[in-house]
Design a protein around this nucleic acid. Sequence first.
DNA 1: GATGAATGAGTATTCATTCAT
DNA 2: GATGAATGAATACTCATTCAT
Lengths: 211, 211, 211, 211
Amino acid sequence: MSQKKFVPASVRDERLIEKRRNQMINAAVALFKEKGFHRTTTREIAKKSGFSIGTLYEYIRAKEDVLYLVCDRIYDEVRDRLIRIDAGQGTLESLKLAIAHYFRIVDELQDEVLVMYQEAKSLTKEALPYVLKKEMEMVGIFEKMIRKCAENGELDLDEKEMEMLAHNIFVQGEMWAFRRWAFKKKFTIEDYIRLQTHLLFSGLETRDMMA
Amino acid sequence: MSQKKFVPASVRDERLIEKRRNQMINAAVALFKEKGFHRTTTREIAKKSGFSIGTLYEYIRAKEDVLYLVCDRIYDEVRDRLIRIDAGQGTLESLKLAIAHYFRIVDELQDEVLVMYQEAKSLTKEALPYVLKKEMEMVGIFEKMIRKCAENGELDLDEKEMEMLAHNIFVQGEMWAFRRWAFKKKFTIEDYIRLQTHLLFSGLETRDMMA
Amino acid sequence: MSQKKFVPASVRDERLIEKRRNQMINAAVALFKEKGFHRTTTREIAKKSGFSIGTLYEYIRAKEDVLYLVCDRIYDEVRDRLIRIDAGQGTLESLKLAIAHYFRIVDELQDEVLVMYQEAKSLTKEALPYVLKKEMEMVGIFEKMIRKCAENGELDLDEKEMEMLAHNIFVQGEMWAFRRWAFKKKFTIEDYIRLQTHLLFSGLETRDMMA
Amino acid sequence: MSQKKFVPASVRDERLIEKRRNQMINAAVALFKEKGFHRTTTREIAKKSGFSIGTLYEYIRAKEDVLYLVCDRIYDEVRDRLIRIDAGQGTLESLKLAIAHYFRIVDELQDEVLVMYQEAKSLTKEALPYVLKKEMEMVGIFEKMIRKCAENGELDLDEKEMEMLAHNIFVQGEMWAFRRWAFKKKFTIEDYIRLQTHLLFSGLETRDMMA
DNA sequence: GATGAATGAGTATTCATTCAT
DNA sequence: GATGAATGAATACTCATTCAT
């Protein structure tokens, strides 16, 4: 895991580290979701994790490490699930499927994504670039798909448009999480997928131009 | 001003309140941008505002009032600027212009928008719905424009699509602020406007379908 | 008034000083009764007095002056009322009447007496002895009555007993105020007078000795 | 101990809680005596207790808890000492002894009693009734003794008189503490006992009536 | 004389972190 | 490895007092 690069533990046993950090991350996500990173205390995290404050600090150096671990984990989770369906055939259809798939992942990991989204800015100066890199990786996944479509002649976009499109898709996924408050009563995730896909692919001028 | 509804001041003089709160808001935006709401102390806000901590508390009840004031102000600012150009003719062209205008506003108020975006979640339970209402108002502005286009036959979208589109436009504006770190070196605001407008209006399937 | 000795005002007009201080004292008694001296703010005193905080400080030097003024006033009030009925005939009957009279005064000035009783300890080092002197004066009034009774052969007490008795009477008066919480539902002031007089004058061994 | 009902500690170890709270109470009594509850800071209490401010707050929730703990402890102390000599034989002699005993206890715990007496009014709304209950318990102890005397025919008092007498005795005890300033130079505690006992038992009219 | 905006020292309380057991 | 008592720097907020108008 990449965690070790940034967050050294006092404990040696790798399995234990993994186990304890899982407990921590689960506890932290729940707490951060409820009250945000700053309003959550290390004691609360330890308690909800099922161990003492002393033990917590055997696995992290500082409170911010918890946040880093959380963000790190969520990105990995989303990315791992996303690449599980390889959508690299370079057809519009496979791109649409990938987008739908991605949106469903966000839906399932709603809390986690929201937490990461809202709290990432509280990351340490050192941890931030690493997390941003992960985000760019994810955008890169979409970019690659898009580029394949372009290469196949399924899409007619220049470099910049492709990049921007990848960002748009990525943000629209997160949007499902961070605008829950506005969407909850109006759309299901399947509505959301349908609507966004339509808006994305059909374009606003299509019909006029075809008339 | 709507501020008074939520944030009573001990001081009576309305002009003074306005002036002092302006000082406060400016100071707070700068500080929140740099270190976030939670890491900014009330003393720092007071100092940067140019008055003492005691004076600060003559104009607010609690630290969170500063955040509310900041959010309130930024929304008003963005909205006021946005509605200054009336884009209500109901043509695609005018919609495009409005979007471009909105994106430029976000560009100018970059710091403010970013702060509001990142810190709004720290608002009090009481203040949050009020701020969300303002956000819906802004989305509503775009929705109205879109609806007019639809009425004019310039757009062929159903209710839900119109609503979603309005959200998309709004979020794409904020996106320019909150993804600065990714865009800064690649796109100017004018690039951004061109790219997003193109992606929004042309649609990905256009060319294929026309071919 | 003795006030001037301790509490100089910036204002010259004696009538005004008298008037303002009356407003202050009334406001303060009400507030101190409700929340105690320490929890009452000068702003509250000013507001309830009907003038501004600035004006308040034209008539006192410090918050503690208000307390002194309050105590001073209450003692004067009690004493003035007490000596109004001259009970100096030196009979047991007149002593009983004086006691009953005193208890009724305390009953009427309940709030004031309670406030003074509870807050006097917060007086300044300089003001305290002056107030204690006033208290001794009041004890002295009873002592004098008692001594007259002794001189008349109505009482057979030595010096120390007379002094102690005077204290007892004085404290029993205050007791009606400071044990209100215990007495309220059980005794009226007339009950209290009857009971205490009986206990004071009959003595516990009386009947036995007479048997 | 009844303390736990009202004042939860973060620390688990009961012995430690007992120990630390003892330190706290001793420190607090000394400080409250010197400067009163409001003028004593939590830091002073912590310092005088021999630990840090952080540690102080491991054993209380708020400053007012210290006051409650102090009052609670003093009442227990006085009561425990008082009931140690069982004066329940129902003779006037035993009642006199109990009173003398009680007065001597107050003399020994002078500072504590004074503090409790002066600061009890600063107790929280929740703690106050509990402390008042304790006070009534103590009054009740005297009432029971008195009642036994009455049952034995040693005293001829009605219900109300018995109750009032119990209050009088109780207050006369506290009086030795809160009128120290007046008595110090004139009476020893033994003088006080003798004088009060005499006034209490002989009654003012005795001799006259016997004559 | 009256006002009330400004001041800033002072205070209770929290909480990340350490370290002896 | 685990524990949790101890620490004290940090921080939001209050309030008596002043002084320019």
